[in-house]
Structure formats: structure tokens, C-alpha cells
Design a protein around this nucleic acid. Structure first.
Lengths: 361, 361
DNA sequence: TTGAAAGCGTTACCAT
DNA sequence: ATGGTAACGCTTTCAA
């Protein structure tokens, strides 16, 4: 019979090219049922963990299934169950190492919980709405946005359709969504303390995207920290979280009549650009002539050539927290969104002068 | 009537908590049809590009749809159409900047063609089979694997179910799959020429995963190039495409009684590790005391602190080629797989001594 | 152009 | 434990 089927399939293929994809013969539960001599429902049960099917029946079904190479169609399953087990993940800034690391963690944790990631590339500059809307069409069970913001239109859609959303590295104006962030304000304030304690008197800020909550909080924390010591910003240029723009911002700062003696960059990615410019275009010895501090503790920050002092945002922990928050809302629909702050710490390396007596760790 | 519906929906929600997700009221095409006073088929047509529906009818439908906030359910559509418009993308090595860049390009091109990416994280070490099998369950229209290999079991599955596969940065033993690679052999051979012309006499190789086709081709190309000049490898250690392992490999090489005067690393990611070790642990002036060459031209290679001489594998072009190959096979089922080699070029920077008279570009 | 109806491959309820 | 059957939300003939 298997042979007959094969023959029939072969005929079909040679006789006429399959027009609609639907006509492409695929093995369904009914086929398995027929071969195993049971009902189609039984097959369904055999593939449903924790079902009610006799051991002997299950064996016959499984054997038939593997003979036929049967795999349950998850699209159909999703349709009836009303859950796709798909999570839409929108990510900007893939060129900033923090984000791939985050994505990796998210994928990992989601996979463990039986969910798959539908990646929504977000071109900075381009509108993310179409991509998110399409994700909704796929009936994703949840949405995760990292380093991007949620338009209120989409937020409304999600609320309507009861699709939970968690924002990573951003906070929302529209409530109802969960958020996971690092210690933006307090981390930046601590960096100010650190720089002032190190004897710096002309600290400047290289900003990320000005409209992002992350940048705003880091800017405020830094300013607050300086103010506590009676200092103000000696410069403030935006790098838009972009390498080249951060390099340009650094150039502007270092060309100032009275250039800064320290640079706090709103992300490691930008801090690396700042180091490159300071070192190779202005001949500064980073850590001596000028101090550079970042935020994230992403990949290259640890490499000896940079030895970047930075406030850590543990990507893995943030991924775990975000997944946990999302799953909680999926499992208990209507539960209140959570706002989680993942603790980090100041990684003291050599890109900034270390204050005498600063606690080693 | 809209108001009445709203009221009814509200009642339903308050009366009893939705038990199964299926009971969660969602607006379907039939609802739109009812409101617009047309058949459900008409609604379907109105949302099918290039359909057959009168202008006035379409207007009524669209208005009803937007009143109700209707969006066609792509899961259901996929089920009937027999195509999911989902592509499974398996990626290893997300910590190597080449891969996020590739992923970005893939997502971009796929989105333009109306496909979405289902990301299959591949933990190196872990088995990728379960993830790929699950992707197949979702009835992905195609599979793309980058920096990972395809087990023959999965390859067989894909062949059976007529799911096209394209491998990026790997070639396959199992035929029937398309491949996209860089100029592994010739690029590596050119690097050998370059190093020999630069006066190096003790070149060593830092290998990637020994079983990968990419590593094998680069190793062979390098060896062939050296042989042409009567040289042999002065060292050969594996870094498994991993930063830390590449650092360890470099240490072993530089501790040799007669250490190499040049290092060719099978990826930029490893080359960066090699530079860090040579520079910061052995005090070598990279580009003078020792030459380091990589392969990829990924992100940090361009940064002045590394100025890595490397053979470029343009991620964007490879992504485009891969998407094109995949779509070709999806659109013309049964068409022969293609094997594309994306041309790159030697990026001459300062991490390796430049031979006198070597053509500038 | 439009509507009725038959799928698409599952799951879940209800009897048996 | 098992089978029959009605959804799930859509697309696509086929007639009208």
C-alpha cells in the first residue's frame, strides 16, 4: 500500500504540475488513522501530550505515523486551539551587539517554553507599524519590542485583541504593556559620581536617540549626578545610538574650544566609536588624557583594546525577565503588566580614570 | 448596530470568563459580511489582491472591516492556500557580527517579498534537529541555514515535503539543497599570496570548526597558496569559530619555540581575538611584529583599533543571493538547486604587513 | 460580480 | 478509551 501510494504520488506529479499548493498531497491525520485502523480523533489524541489513549493503540498509531512520515500541521492546530505559539519580536539596532545577545536569550527562553520567534526587522527610520500589524495577522500570542517604540495605534490593536506586549529597553506612554529595563537613571548617576570622584571637571554626554526613554533616563541620571557635585554638562551631542553618528558627535565635542575631559556615551556601541575617534583621530590616550564610559557591557566592551568602563545591562537576565513577563500575561490574560528593572553594576575597566580608593570588585 | 454588537461583546465578556481560547470572540470575515450586507466570500475577495469585486461593494466592505477592526487571519489563510509565507531561519554564532548582519539582510529581503522569518536559534553544541523539525511543523515555505549544517534526516524530510533549503556559509553532503558561500578557497589562497609577498616565512592557521565546509575550503586554499611558494604551515590550531577558543589557540601558537610570523584566522571574529592576545598578552605590534589576517570583513574589522586585513564576504550580497535562490525554488517547485559563490575582495588594512608594490585599491 | 458550499488539517465536545 | 461531528476562519470552485 505504501508502494501504491508512492506510485500514485509519482503519477500525479508527472501527469500534471500541481496548480494550487493545496493540491500538493500532504499526509494528514486521516491517512494515519486509516493505516492504523483507528479514528482520526485517536490520532489527534496520540499527538496531544496528556491525552487519553491506550498504550497498544498509541503504538499502532505511532508506527503508522512514522511509516507515513506524518507530522501534525501546527497551522491547523493553531487555528482550532486559538493560540499560535508564535511570538513576534521586533528589534532595531542589530548592529549593536547588545541586541543580538538579547535576541539570542529571548529565543532560547521562548523555545524552552514551547514558543517560536517571528522576527520583525525594524529598520531605524522606517516605520515599524506594517511589520507589527502583519505579526498580529499571524495571530502571535505576544509581542516583544526591543530598542523600538510602540505606536499608539498598534498598542490599541494589541489591547483590543488581548495580545500582551513587553517592551525591552524602552518604556511606554501607552499603559497596559509590560516593560523591562536596566538601571538607566541610577546607573547613569553612579557614572557621574565615578567620573567626578576621578577628578573630572568637564564631563560631556553623547546621547542616543533623543526621543527614547532610555536615553532620557540616562541623560537625566547623569545630569542629576553631576548636579549633586555642583557640575554641569560640558557638552552634549547626539549620536542616535549609531556608530558613525557617535563618531561625528565625538569629533564635535573634542574640537570644542574647551573640550571635555570625560565622555559618557548612552550606549557601549557609541562609546566604542568615541574611543576610536579620541584615540586615532585626536591622539588621546583613553583612560589617561580622556575618560570614556559606556552603558550596556556589550561584547567588545570587555576586549582589552577597549577595556570599556560601563554600566552593565545583562542581556541574558533581561531576556529572561522579558520572557517571564510575557508568558505571565499570556497564561493569565488580563493580569496587570509588570515593570521590571534588571539590576546591573558598574564594570570598572581602564577606559576611564579610576578614582583613588574606589572599591575594587 | 455597531453599538449593539459592542454591547453584546461586553456582555459576553462579563458573563463568563472565556475558557478555551477558541471561545475568545474574534472578529471574522463573516462578521464583516453581515455588517456590509454581502456574502463572506465577497469579504475574502476584497482582501485578495487582484480579485473580482465591484468598487462600490469593496467600499462597503472596507468600511465595515475598519469599523469592526477586522484583519484576515493568516493562519486560516495559510491553511487553505497551502502556503504559510513563513521561512525558517536557523543561525548559529549570533555573537559573531557577521551573522546578525546576515540576518538583518535576510529579514529585509524576505519582507520585501512578503515573507516572514521564524528564527531558529541554534545553540552550538546543541542539536539543531528539534528546532528544524518544529519549523517544518509550522509548514514553513522554505528553510535557510547559516553557519550550521543540515542533518541528513532533516534534509530527507525537506525533500519529502518539497521544502526548499538554502545553506549559507556551508555546503552540503546531501544534494538537493542550494548553497551560498563566499570565495573560501580562492580568497584564502590569495591571502597566502599576500602574506608570502609581504615576506612572511612562518604562517600559521587558526581554524574554525574543523568539520565545517567553510573551514575546510579556507584551510585548503591557504595551504595551496603556501605550497605554490614552497611553504608549509608553521602552526595549525583550532579556534572553533569561537572568540575565547581562538584566543587560546593564538596563545598556543605564540608560545611555540619558533612562533609564526603571520596568522590567518578562518573568521574575523577569531582574528580579533588573535589580535587582542598578540597585542595585550604578548606585546606584539600587530602589523609589524606579527601579521594577522581574517575572513569576512565583519563590523569591528573596520574599526581603526583593529584595521583588520581580511577577505570580504559581503553579508548583504550573500543575504540577497540566498533569498533569491530560496524564492526561485519556492516559485518553481522542482527546479534545480543553485550553488552560488558571492565574490568578495581582499580588504588591505594595517593588521598585516603590506607587500611593497601590492596594488592599492 | 456575487453567493453557496466544499474543503484545508486540526481539536474538542459528546456520546458510546 | 474511542469514534463521530461540529467548529476554527479562511479560500476557491461552481453556478447563477
Amino acid at each position: 500500500m505504501g508502494a501504491a501510494w508512492l506510485c500514485w504520488a509519482a503519477m500525479r506529479r508527472t501527469i500534471k504540475p500541481p496548480a494550487t499548493a493545496a493540491s500538493r498531497r500532504t499526509v494528514r491525520a486521516a491517512d494515519v488513522a486509516a493505516l492504523a485502523g483507528v479514528s482520526q480523533s485517536a490520532v489527534s489524541r496520540a499527538f496531544t501530550p496528556g491525552a487519553s489513549v491506550a498504550g497498544e493503540t498509541r503504538a499502532r498509531i505511532e508506527s503508522a505515523a512514522s511509516d507515513l512520515g506524518y507530522r501534525p500541521n501546527r497551522l491547523a492546530r493553531s487555528l482550532t486551539r486559538g493560540e499560535s505559539r508564535l511570538i513576534g519580536v521586533a528589534m532595531g539596532h542589530l548592529e549593536n551587539y547588545f541586541y543580538p545577545a538579547l535576541l539570542d536569550g529571548i529565543g532560547q527562553h521562548l523555545a524552552e517554553a514551547g514558543y517560536r520567534v517571528v522576527l520583525l526587522g525594524v529598520r531605524s527610520g522606517h516605520d515599524s507599524e506594517p511589520a507589527l500589524a502583519e505579526a498580529l495577522d499571524y495571530r502571535v500570542d505576544g509581542l516583544m519590542l526591543a530598542g523600538t517604540t510602540l505606536s499608539s495605534r498598534i498598542a490599541e490593536q494589541c489591547a483590543n485583541e488581548a495580545v500582551p506586549v513587553v517592551l525591552i529597553n524602552r518604556t511606554a506612554m501607552s499603559d497596559g504593556v509590560s516593560t523591562v529595563t536596566g538601571e538607566n537613571f541610577s546607573g547613569a548617576r553612579l557614572i557621574a559620581d565615578f567620573l567626578v570622584a576621578g577628578g573630572h571637571r568637564r564631563p560631556a554626554f553623547v546621547a542616543g536617540q533623543p526621543e527614547s526613554s532610555t536615553n532620557r533616563d540616562r541623560a537625566r541620571g547623569f545630569a542629576a549626578g553631576l548636579a549633586a557635585h555642583g557640575l554641569v554638562l560640558a557638552g552634549n551631542e547626539t549620536g542616535n545610538y549609531d556608530f558613525d553618528e557617535a563618531a561625528a558627535a565625538t569629533r564635535r565635542l573634542l574640537r570644542l574650544p574647551a573640550p571635555p575631559d570625560a565622555l559618557f556615551c548612552a550606549s557601549d556601541h557609541m562609546a566604542l566609536a568615541a574611543i576610536e575617534v579620541a584615540r586615532h583621530e585626536f591622539g588621546r590616550a583613553v583612560g589617561q588624557d580622556i575618560s570614556v564610559v559606556g552603558f550596556d557591557d556589550a561584547g567588545p566592551a570587555r576586549w582589552p583594546s577597549f577595556a570599556l568602563t560601563t554600566y552593565a545591562q545583562p542581556a541574558e537576565a533581561m531576556a529572561a525577565a522579558a520572557v517571564q513577563a510575557l508568558l505571565a500575561q499570556i497564561e493569565r490574560p488580563g493580569s496587570a503588566p509588570v515593570h521590571q528593572v534588571v539590576p546591573g553594576r558598574l564594570m570598572v575597566r581602564q577606559s576611564a580614570r579610576v578614582p583613588a580608593g574606589w572599591p575594587k570588585d
